[in-house]
Amino acid sequence: STLVRVAKSATTLGIAVEGGANTRQPLPRIVTIQATRGGSAHNCGQLKVGQVILEVNGVSMRGREHRDAARLIAEAFKTKERDHVDFLVTEFNVAL
């Protein structure tokens, strides 16, 4: 797995995620990185489509349903406590 620090360099994060507990994709997976009107993720250049998100700012995504995982990611981007979001990602769809 890889730790990717995404600086809040744009007003949006600019990713789409699918998955969560009790779905076919048990951990959130990046399905889109917005390139036109690039968001922070695009500017960062290290997140890739297909990567599975294991942790956000050290908080595990395991066992979280889709809306909960999406809410945590959104809140990590929104908070003014940090000027970045740390993603622990893996290229592989880890079995649970």
Binding site: I15, A16, V17, E18, T23, R24, F77
Partner: peptide
């Protein structure tokens, strides 16, 4: 386990 997995629903997609 594999059969159970196949019955799980697809996830929604959220833009962030």
């Amino acid at each position: 386990v594999r059969e159970k997995r196949l019955t799980l629903p697809p996830s929604e997609i959220t833009m962030l």
